[in-house]
Amino acid sequence: DTINITLPDGKTLTLTVTPEFTVKELAEEIARRLGLSPEDIKDTHNGKTLDPSLTLAEYGITPGSTITLEIK
């Protein structure tokens, strides 16, 4: 299953994830792909900052969802 990550420059990154991924694991994968530190990444969905300890499923993030990435 894939989700879309909207980057600060407007580009989109597509990642393969499972509903059990935590937001922290997602940030780590994004950081790895972009050459950043996971601590520099802030993920938001529907205007809410995502708690790193919760899973994508707990936020109702499903395949095809879009998450907005902010760099701290």
Rank of each mutant, 00 (worst) to 15 (best):
D1A: 15
D1P: 13
T2K: 09
T2S: 11
T2H: 10
I3L: 08
I3W: 02
I3F: 03
I5P: 01
I5R: 00
T6W: 11
T6A: 14
P8G: 09
D9P: 02
D9R: 02
D9K: 03
D9H: 07
G10E: 02
K11E: 10
K11W: 12
T12N: 09
T12Q: 09
T12G: 05
T12L: 09
L13H: 05
T14E: 08
T14F: 09
T14K: 11
T16M: 11
T16D: 08
V17C: 06
V17I: 13
T18A: 06
T18Q: 06
T18P: 06
T18K: 08
T18W: 13
T18S: 10
P19V: 05
E20I: 09
E20K: 09
E20L: 12
E20N: 12
F21A: 07
F21G: 04
F21W: 14
T22R: 03
T22S: 04
V23T: 02
V23H: 01
K24R: 14
K24D: 02
E25K: 07
E25P: 01
E25Q: 14
L26G: 00
A27P: 00
E28H: 07
E28G: 04
E29C: 06
I30K: 00
I30D: 00
I30W: 01
A31E: 05
R32H: 10
R33S: 07
R33Y: 14
L34E: 03
L34W: 06
L36M: 12
L36C: 11
L36A: 06
S37M: 12
P38F: 15
P38R: 06
P38D: 05
P38W: 14
E39F: 15
E39V: 15
I41V: 07
K42V: 15
K42G: 13
D43N: 15
T44E: 09
T44N: 08
T44Y: 08
N46D: 14
N46S: 14
G47N: 08
G47Y: 05
K48F: 14
T49F: 14
P52C: 11
S53C: 08
L54P: 02
L54S: 10
L54Y: 07
L54N: 05
L54D: 03
L56N: 00
E58R: 01
E58I: 03
Y59A: 15
G60E: 03
G60N: 05
G60W: 02
G60P: 01
T62R: 07
P63T: 08
G64R: 00
G64K: 01
G64Q: 04
S65Q: 08
S65K: 05
S65G: 05
S65E: 05
S65I: 09
T66I: 09
T66D: 05
T66G: 03
I67H: 04
T68G: 07
T68P: 05
L69R: 00
L69I: 14
L69T: 04
E70V: 11
E70T: 10
E70C: 08
E70I: 11
I71H: 06
I71A: 05
I71Y: 12
I71E: 04
K72F: 10
K72C: 13
